[in-house]
């Protein structure tokens, strides 16, 4: 693959803290290699800012290999940028051309308040898991792992849902800021396995209740979440969640 260098204009959201109103600032970066990752390009901008005596741009990132779910960013209006099934940290600069202007913003959702610049607070996701996203089994209770055969296809489907990295792109992509894809991925992961069976009703009810309490919006089935998800979590998980929720509502102890 041919490598090339480019000069870019970056419009970046700056916001000092949660209370600050915030706004865009424009920066120029030069000689960016097409081999760099998008975050390495931001590293270069930050080095430039520090050298100029300015504050570095705060952005969340950690593993830089697409699995920890820490990185975020709307890049030209798209969560995690243009590439399909991809996280921001795995987006590379060959996706851009010399002379381009790139707009970079934090996730926008009431349930994800901005901490600083491009960093948001996603602790609402932890609280949704606390509401029921687990199997209630203490260490030491387990029987032999092979005592419980599980149909391979169901196990594979469960795994496909469990691949969710909790980055919040589904919420960011949704015009209602709904967290349905995130919640449905966890409900599906556990509902598809026999281990999740005993708590299936309370789990879905409690997780949905917590999701509403956190201020996430309703799902109107536009599918933007699935199209954006870096792990390509399927919309069919939302159907499963709705089925589980309906069943739980109808059979709940009054």
């Amino acid at each position: 693959m041919e490598h090339y260098n480019m000069n870019l204009t970056l419009k970046v959201w700056r916001q000092k803290n949660k209370e600050d109103k915030g706004g865009f600032q424009t920066f120029q970066v030069k000689d960016i290699s097409s081999e760099m990752s998008f975050l390495e390009m931001l590293d270069i901008l930050n080095e430039q800012l520090i050298n100029e005596g300015k504050d570095a741009i705060a952005f969340d990132h950690d593993c830089r290999e697409g699995i920890c779910g820490t990185c975020s960013l709307y890049i030209n209006g798209k969560p995690h940028g243009e590439w399909k099934g991809n996280t921001t940290c795995q987006l590379h600069m060959r996706a851009f051309k010399d002379g381009e202007t790139i707009t970079i913003e934090p996730w926008r959702a009431n349930a994800f308040p901005v901490i600083k610049d491009l960093v948001v607070d996603r602790s609402s996701f932890d609280r949704i898991i606390q509401a029921g996203g687990y199997v209630s089994v203490n260490t030491g209770n387990a029987m032999d792992g092979n005592c419980l055969p599980i149909d391979k296809n169901r196990a594979d489907d469960s795994f496909a849902a469990a691949m969710c990295i909790g980055c919040g792109a589904c919420v960011a992509a949704c015009k209602n800021s709904s967290a349905m894809l995130f919640v449905s991925a966890k409900v599906s992961h556990l509902a598809l396995l026999p281990q999740g069976e005993p708590e299936k009703r309370s789990r879905v009810m409690n997780m949905i209740a917590q999701m509403d309490k956190e201020g996430f919006g309703a799902c109107t089935n536009t599918g933007a979440c699935e199209a954006t998800c870096p792990k390509e979590i399927s919309l069919s998980n939302i159907s499963r969640l709705n089925k589980e929720y309906l069943f739980a509502s109808l059979t709940a102890d009054k």
Binding site: Y134, V135, V137, T139, G140, N141, A142, M143, D144, G145, L148, A155, D156, S158, F159, A162, H189, L190, L193, Q195, G196
Partner: peptide
Amino acid sequence: DQCVAQGVPFA
């Protein structure tokens, strides 16, 4: 065993 009981979807 413990991980299976928690619902870890091993291959």
